[in-house]
């Protein structure tokens, strides 16, 4: 029981981290129709910038300044990169962001090297807030959970209750009409891209101390973010939230379960063969759920694409 409660908390933490990344990506995708392969690279930049700033000004200034720099960099990429490539169609845009991801990774290696960075959570949050059974819950994780929730509420408010939000939503569906009404749609695009990358930056700042700050961190998280927005439904903030939490809990419970596929085979009345090398199911006999946990989100994505291609909350086709 203790393990279930602690897994719920851990899954919530991981899910909300995914949400901070996927919310920006899903907005960018639905607005420009381009999959931003470099999105996770901005997450990495956030962590590295915050690490560098925290060396001089401390963690909290890093949390404040690093996402701003990342957001400005993102807006710059949209204004001077993507917008020029846009006229040639979606494929060049895709290739552009892909190249950008590689470039950012190489730049990070060039300036900071291959080593892990000793990016630490602030001293004030370095204690166990409470324990469930023997398992401690660090205060920093609780702080992260509340920060993410605050960001979600703020984002939801801006998108649904303010004038800016309405223009963005309108530009999502009818960009030509909105432009005809006298709104500067390219500026809206640039703003959304900047805010989206800044959100990824915040995720990087917060996740860097927990998940490690190293040149491979973008690659590790990159693909799962795409899975999240496909499952959630493109362009839907609620969908991104639901899918993130779903994946967070799915991977957490899978990794901590002790389910063995041998039990399943036994249940179906099969017996473990004496000579494994002859059995065509030999891999299944020795497989455990934690071993394949990280693949589960991808299986879920395939199922969603087959049975509900719009995603959980989406309105548009993929």
């Amino acid at each position: 029981m203790d393990l279930v409660v602690i897994n719920l908390i851990d899954g919530l933490f991981y899910g909300l981290l995914l949400f901070m990344l996927s919310s920006g990506l899903t907005l960018i995708f639905s607005m420009m129709g381009v999959l931003n392969f470099a999105h996770a690279s901005f997450y990495m930049l956030g962590a590295y910038f915050a690490y560098q700033i925290s060396m001089y000004l401390g963690f909290w200034m890093g949390l404040l300044i690093a996402p701003l720099i990342v957001g400005i960099a993102g807006a710059g990429v949209e204004r001077y990169g993507l917008r020029r490539v846009h006229q040639y169609g979606h494929v060049p845009e895709l290739i552009f962001t892909f190249g950008l991801a590689l470039l950012i990774e190489e730049l990070v290696k060039f300036f900071w090297g291959n080593n892990l960075m000793a990016y630490q959570e602030p001293e004030i949050l370095k204690f166990a807030l409470f324990s469930v059974g023997a398992n401690a819950v660090p205060a920093y994780k609780v702080f992260m959970i509340f920060t993410s929730i605050a960001i979600f509420v703020g984002l939801l408010y801006v998108l649904t209750r303010t004038r800016v939000g309405m223009i963005i939503q309108a530009a999502l569906s009818y960009p030509r009409t909105v432009e005809a009404l006298g709104h500067n749609v390219p500026l809206v695009f640039m703003g959304v891209f900047g805010v989206g990358t800044a959100l990824a930056g915040v995720a990087g700042v917060l996740a860097g101390p927990v998940l490690g700050t190293f040149p491979g961190m973008a690659f590790v998280l990159g693909s799962i973010v795409f899975v999240t927005i496909v499952i959630g439904g493109l362009g839907s903030l609620w969908g991104a939230l639901a899918a993130s939490l779903l994946l967070g809990w799915l991977t957490t419970f899978a990794a901590s379960s002790s389910f063995q596929f041998a039990d399943l085979l036994n249940f179906f009345g099969m017996t473990r063969p004496e000579d494994m090398s002859e059995s065509y199911l030999r891999d299944l006999w020795s497989l455990t759920l934690p071993q394949i946990g990280p693949i589960l989100p991808y299986i879920l994505m395939v199922l969603i694409l087959v049975f509900r291609p719009y995603g959980l909350f989406g309105k548009r086709d993929v």
Partner: peptide, 9 residues
């Protein structure tokens, strides 16, 4: 990505 569930176990 996150080793926490393994650590919990």
């Amino acid at each position: 990505k996150d080793f926490t569930p393994y650590a919990r176990k």
